[in-house]
Write a protein that binds this DNA or RNA. Sequence first.
DNA 1: CCCTCGATCAC
DNA 2: CCTCATATCGAGGG
Length: 359
Amino acid sequence: MKIILHVDMDSFYAAVEERENPKLKGKPIAVCMFSGRSENSGAVATANYPARKLGIKSGMPIAFAKKKGGGKAVFLKVNKPLYEEVSDRIMGVLEKNADIFEQRGIDEAFLDVSKKAKNDFKEAKKIAERIKQEIKKKERLTCSAGIGTNKLVAKMASGFQKPDSLTLVEEKDARRFLEQFPLEKLWGIGPKTLERLNEMGVGSLDDLKEITSEKLSVEFGDKKGKWLYDAARGKDESPVEPKGEREQIGRIMTLKEDSQDVELIGNALDTLSHEVFEKFKERDEKFRTVSVVAISTGLKGKSRSKTLQSASRDPEVIKDVARELMEKYLKGENVTLRRVGVGISNFEKDIGQKSLAEF
DNA sequence: CCCTCGATCAC
DNA sequence: CCTCATATCGAGGG
């Protein structure tokens, strides 16, 4: 039997900001992504607990959050490089405590600790306590941890008593533990899946157990269908797997104003292409696919992509192909765009020669 | 099997 | 009033 630990930082962005600026201590904080089209356009990325008490939630429009905040809350702009730097150190602490380590996003990770814990939940608990201690001491940040026999249970456990919590769910308790959550709180069940399940007459995990694996596969596809079937039974065989390098690099931005203008949009694409290349260039690889995303005023997103005959690592290629894809798209549809994005993927090793200087 | 594209989830 | 970034799946076409 495996023992899986899931660690999730508590309101990470806001907590880092609070730590960096003692004046903010205890205050409601909303860390926001400002889109720049007007004073308050954008969304809340993370709200700390005092802010949540005021009704400010992540994903919420900033203008809306400000109404809720009643002037009490502090609104900050995200400082991603700072959070990344802090995250790297935290992930180092987590990784050294794991047999197998899988980072998921900037502030959470799965740790397979089966060997280190000698298959003993008590040992796993000690490991989790040690991790929490070390992060608190070194970074002055809290996190929540969940321990279970699989990723699903561990993930649900870490979120169960946030913040600064540690929740153990032994195998015999897993089913009952999961059953207390409404379906939509289950990891992997979002609004769409919930709606379709409801239409099938499924309103709880218990109901879900009544549906056959075949039926779920027809409705949700093979993978997801099987996953749901297992989830209803507290089962999740997916392994903790180290994440390799990113397989896509993308950037998206909100236009200063809604636009149909090829030149204005083209300029935005140039900027994005440049930023994408900046992230990509330190890798010793080439990309083969360039894609663009166009999000209309109605917030409907469309994507277009092109895979090149031969791989490239030329920033101009990103720009050119992005423009080409977008121009073609805009010609075909009569749409006004709100946001645009550029991405590259399909990386392959660059076995190119060294430059003369290196040689 | 590869490519394109949309959908979904969730940070 | 509506951010940003990535992974994964599946359908449909070739």
